[in-house]
């Protein structure tokens, strides 16, 4: 009885996602076999494909960690996209104007500026929430548009590479680029940094007093306040860290992958980060797994398009399905259990 329930609990979600995928593929009218083999070869086919998955995973993990810190404190940060752009902008400015600095000086400087720019961008809604009780949800979302347009403006005007007709910045100097991990792939050291940061976020949130405060504030701000916790300070701090990590993702993208600033540097990483954090239950380990999953899904989808002509929008549908199933997970198989209205 018990085992039965558990199996149902796990099979149902997977099955329903799979069924949707198959149904959609049939609807589109492609060969299932080649679609699936394209999908999986795309993810794990060779070292290059695997590295591509990890390249995608890196910004998702960083921005996802950012969202999770905000969510843990009850700061619903939907602005990771904008924060990522601001981080990318700040590191690019450093890279372009101080490109002559030595690698070991320039990279840390870019990191710090990327982090700070994203953090400060999130700090505005953070302070607004803490001081005036304004909704950070709307505010952070709106700040995305401002940031994206601001970057669009910058690369068409003062940051534009005059040598080149398209709106983009000058390419970074060698010294402003993150070193590669595996030759002939795009996998860069930012991936390792992201993993280390995930571990640090875990230690911070679960082992330190400050991290505990942040989680307590997210859990019950009123009770936290009543035992003497400065809730507003924690909201502000978590918004700073949350945006900072998203900004760091921006740094990693420009310095590790693009080597210049341009439109669309973030293939929606900031928005996907919200889902990553949600799927990962706001826990660094979960976030890492979810980031890997979404990264793989993205690369697999691209490859499926190449090999079987399936539009990549299918991946988006599947992603949406996964999130819905995830939110419904408690209703699969087992129902009651842990509701306590006492």
């Amino acid at each position: 009885m018990k085992i039965n329930r558990n199996i149902i609990h796990y099979i149902w979600p997977v099955a329903s996602v799979l069924m949707t995928a198959i149904l959609l593929l049939i609807l589109i009218g492609v060969d299932l076999g080649s679609a699936f083999s394209g999908f999986f070869r795309g993810m794990f086919g060779n070292i290059y494909q695997i590295s591509e998955v990890l390249v995608k995973t890196t910004p998702l993990l960083l921005a996802g960690l950012g969202c999770s810190i905000g969510f843990q404190c009850g700061f619903i940060n939907l602005g990771a996209e904008g924060q990522l752009y601001m981080g990318a902008l700040a590191s690019s400015v450093v890279a372009i104007f101080l490109g002559h600095l030595p690698h070991l000086l320039l990279i840390p400087l870019m990191m710090v500026c990327g982090f700070l720019a994203g953090g400060l961008w999130a700090l505005i809604p953070g302070v607004m929430k803490a001081k005036f009780g304004l909704s950070e949800v709307i505010m952070s979302l709106m700040f995305n548009y401002i940031a994206i347009q601001f970057i669009a403006l910058a690369i068409r005007t003062w940051l534009k590479d005059p040598e080149y007709p398209f709106p983009m910045s000058q390419p970074f100097t060698e010294s402003a680029q993150l070193p590669r991990l595996v030759p002939r792939t795009r996998l860069h050291i930012g991936f390792i940094i992201a993993i280390v940061l995930a571990a640090l976020v875990y230690i911070f949130l679960w082992k330190t007093a400050r991290g505990f405060q942040i989680r307590a504030c997210g859990c019950n701000p009123r009770a936290s306040f009543c035992v003497g916790v400065n809730v507003n300070l924690n909201i502000i701090l978590s918004s700073l860290l949350s945006g900072g990590l998203a900004g760091f993702a921006g740094f990693v993208e420009v310095s590790g992958v693009q080597h210049k600033l341009m439109d669309g540097i973030s293939s929606n990483y900031g928005y996907l980060a919200v889902m990553v954090s949600l799927l990962g239950s706001n826990h660094p380990l979960g976030v890492a797994i979810a980031a890997l999953l979404l990264g793989a899904l993205d690369i697999g989808g691209l490859s499926m398009q190449r090999s079987a002509g399936v539009p990549t929008s299918l991946t988006t549908v599947i992603l949406g399905m996964i999130v819905i199933v995830f939110l419904l997970r408690h209703h699969f198989g087992k129902k009651e259990k842990e509701i306590s209205h006492e």
Partner: peptide, 16 residues
């Protein structure tokens, strides 16, 4: 509302 974190365990509520 004012004293405890319902989803957290007793240790964590002590730490609050």
């Amino acid at each position: 509302n004012d004293a405890i974190l319902l989803p957290m365990n007793l240790n964590q509520n002590l730490l609050l």
